[in-house]
Design a protein around this nucleic acid. Sequence first.
DNA 1: AGTATGACGGTTT
DNA 2: AAAACCGCCATAC
Length: 106
Amino acid sequence: MKTEHNSTLHQRIFDLVEAIPAGKVTTYGQIGGIVGGCSGRIVGFALASLRYTENRQVPWQRVINRQGKISLTGPDAALQRALLEDEGVRFSAEGVIDLAEFGWKT
DNA sequence: AGTATGACGGTTT
DNA sequence: AAAACCGCCATAC
């Protein structure tokens, strides 16, 4: 378990996500492109294993999909939204975030 | 070692 | 415009 991540895409993704400033959000595809052009799926999977281990303080909440919405399915989705709203991110009535406004600029 | 799947993204139907 | 499909790469079984 723990999905040992040593010097892998995981490590790089975590480092990048930690660099996201509060109140800003990023997309899986964006991160994937920065770390090495990997598909957003890889980023999502990396973060998915992250919440399992929780051995890292990665603000996975600031990572959303290209639609500016939360891709999670379970109760984690509500948690993510709550965390983002707490950081100042405004959600639309549809639960969509304005990436043009809150999108993290590299 | 091979198969199945996943917190996505872009294209096609 | 919305839904479905395929494709990308890594992790899990």
